[in-house]
Every structure is written in structure tokens, then in C-alpha cells.
Design a protein around this nucleic acid. Structure first.
Lengths: 209, 209
DNA sequence: GCCCCGTTTACACGATCGTTTGAAACAGGG
DNA sequence: CCCTGTTTCAAACGATCGTGTAAACGGGGC
């Protein structure tokens, strides 16, 4: 192991990531974060200039590896010439659930989207709009006789299954008496990917609009 | 129209419902709620004894019509002898999105699940566990050669698509340049129900576990 | 030795939080 | 009209919020 300790700045980001994901943005004070990191509460003003900037830093820090992993898997698919739907969906879904332990970043994003929708939308657009567009393009290519609008709806539904698995895991665990554990990522994916593949492949119902 | 004005107590609940759904629990102060209802902030202490009790009241008040509508539609199905999957899923999904304008109750529940997971789980169990079990039973009957565990996973995914449609609607609207509007409930359902039907009907992938 | 400068600390500021209080305003029956 | 119980109000409570400030710390270059 490398003996380098994380810098004070990093310790703050890590502590904030954990607490924000657990209790939301408004539910955590700068004093809480500083205490979790073992530092003085004024240091977050020193390093980031304020609580909001710390949040932005947490968001960027967490989004980066997830984006990178998605890109890596896409490149892998390209190299192997694979274009089938299951592989594509897996390449999108798996990095989101593996990015950090038990998807605490997805949880953070869900909370932000509800609590601070203005801050959230700008952060999301900044960090994810390009990746999403890329995946929608590929989905359209994998499903050539589905309308692009319909694909976008289904992409939207897929995001829902992803976020909810990270946000509300205790619900399914309760209902199933512990038989379904959303923290077991491999088991979750084994059910989620076929579910999504079938959903994406569904015949379009004739809608009036 | 009936000339009865809503009672002061009801006005507070309605105002709280709106604000909680918009900004979360921690993001709204009792003074905000009182102002929205046009009353003094002390009245929420007078009527409910505290902010948390007001939240519980809001939750119960919002959950009731949604539950009732689901039951009504199920009874309708029973009466007509309908047991097919699309009708069943529609009976579960539609009341959630129609219960109040643009699913603000789903939004509230998502926020609570993330912000105050302890309060939330008790409220959810109190208000929804029976309904969920009922639907899972019916899903198992409609899909007799799928394992119950798998059905529960897919039920979990369905909840995700529901909640996310209410929580993060702006995302899909942005990505699609406004072509997909999650507030258009009919259009949303026209895409969502076939998606879910296909997902529920999917072949099970052979999982090791 | 000394100073310098990036870091960390303790502390105070004004604002706002949830809640409580006590009295004013209100209603209706005697 | 007064009495009684309910509802509303302004004001204040102690606690905690995010932030700013100024002093103390500590290791490398002179």
C-alpha cells in the first residue's frame, strides 16, 4: 500500500460525500462534515469558499470515475465489434452501481435533484449530458426500428431503476423478507439487465400523439 | 361548488405538502409553511405539535387517495374477470401518477427516503406494505412460471421508474429537447406500461445464486 | 537565528431554525 | 352582557446554521 495519507482537502471531500449521500445537502452542516473529517469547520471555507462549492467538488469527484468506466467499457465493445443490446445496457448500468460502495453517489444525486434542483441540474448537465447523448445514440443504432422519442422515454425509465436501486434499497429488502438485497450488485444486475433489455425491445404501443 | 373553505388545519397540510414535495423536509421551515398557508407559524405547533407530526399527517393524507384508487381499479378488474398483465400494471401505476398533480407525492416520498430514511420507512410500512404485497401476489399469479423472487426484483424496478418520473422530470425533458414531457401523464403511461409489461415478461437469465 | 507563507485554529457575527409562551381575538350559549 | 373554550397572534427562547476574521502554528529558505 502507498503510505500517502489523503490531503486535508481530500479528507473533507470524502467526508462530505459520505454525509451528503446519507442525509442530504440541507441535512448536513459544515460542522458535521468537519467533524467527520477530523478538522476545524472553518477549513471548508478556506479550501472551497463555501458549502455549495464543496458540493460541486464532491459531485465532480464522484462523477469522474463513473464516466471514465463507461467510456472504457464502450471502447472495449467497439474494439470487439459488439453492438448487441445487453452488452450496451450493461456497459451503462454497471459502472453506475460499481462506482462507489452501494451507489452512494446515485443516492446523492437523487437527493440533490429533489432538494436543490437548480444546483443539481447545472451539475448534471455539466457532468453527464454528453455521456447520456452518446448512449442514446447507440441505443438507437441497436434498435433501428424504434422511434428515437420512444428510446428516450425508455432511457428515462432505465435511469429510474438505477437511481431507485441506490436510493430506496430498504423497501425491497423489507417486502421480500431479505431475499432481495440491492446491495448485492451482481445479483441486482442479473435481474436488472434482462428486465431492461426486454423493456427496450418491447413493441411500441400505438399512441395517438 | 361547495362554499366550504378548507379548515386552517387543512390549509396547513396542503401548504406543507406542496413545499415538502418541492424542497424536501429540511429545506422548508415551519415559517415557510405558515406563510404559504397565510397563517402564523405558531399554528403548526398548535395543530400538530411539531414539524414531524405535520409531515406524518401530510404523508397519510396523500397516501389515502392513491391507495383507494388502486383498490378501486383492482376491484374493477376482478368484477370484469380481467387478469392480464397490462391491465394489472396499469392499475398499479396510473393511480400513483394521477393521485395529485404531477406526482408531487411520489416526489415527496423520494426525498423523504433519502433525507429522513428512519421516518420514511415507518411511514411507508404503515401506509403501503399491504398494497405492495397484494400486487406482488397478483403479479405472481399473472406470471406463473416466474420465480417469486424475480417478480419482486422487477416490482422494485417498476417502483424505480415511477418515482424517477416524478422526481427527476427535468432531466429527460432537457435531453430530448422537450420532446418527452413527463408531466404529460397519458403520454408517459403510453410508453411506461408497455415497457414494464415487456420487462415483467422477460425470460429469466440463468443466475448462479 | 529569523522570517515567510500555506495551513489550521478558536471565536464571534448575524441569520434562521423549531418550539414555547401568554395574551388578544373570536365564537356561541347562558 | 359575561363567561368559556377555541383559535390566532406577536414576541421571545435557546440552539444551530453558514461564514468571516484574526491569531497561532510549522516547516523550508535566507
Amino acid at each position: 500500500m502507498d503510505g500517502d495519507q489523503p490531503s486535508s482537502r481530500d479528507r473533507l471531500i470524502i467526508a462530505a460525500q459520505r454525509l451528503f449521500a446519507r442525509h442530504g445537502y440541507n441535512g448536513v452542516s459544515v460542522r458535521d462534515i468537519a467533524a467527520e473529517a477530523g478538522m476545524n469547520s472553518a477549513s471548508i471555507g478556506y479550501y472551497f469558499g463555501g458549502k455549495e462549492n464543496l458540493l460541486a467538488e464532491v459531485y465532480r469527484r464522484s462523477a469522474a470515475p463513473m464516466k471514465a468506466e463507461r467510456r472504457r467499457r464502450l471502447a472495449e465493445l467497439d474494439e470487439a465489434g459488439i453492438t448487441d443490446l445487453p452488452a450496451l445496457i450493461d456497459a451503462f448500468v454497471r459502472p453506475a452501481l460499481l462506482a462507489d460502495e452501494s451507489g452512494s453517489f446515485l443516492r446523492l444525486r437523487t437527493i440533490l435533484s429533489a432538494e436543490n434542483s437548480d444546483i443539481f441540474s447545472s451539475l448534471t448537465a455539466e457532468n453527464f449530458d454528453d455521456t447520456s447523448a452518446e448512449f442514446i445514440d447507440r441505443l438507437c443504432r441497436a434498435l433501428p426500428n424504434r422511434a428515437r422519442t420512444e428510446i428516450m422515454w425508455r432511457f428515462h425509465f432505465m435511469l429510474g431503476t438505477l437511481y431507485y436501486s441506490a436510493t430506496g434499497p430498504q423497501r425491497i429488502a423489507t417486502i421480500s423478507d431479505g431475499q432481495c438485497d440491492p446491495h448485492d450488485v451482481d445479483r441486482l444486475l442479473a435481474s436488472l439487465v434482462p428486465f431492461l433489455v426486454a423493456g427496450f425491445s418491447a413493441q411500441e404501443k400505438d399512441v395517438l400523439s
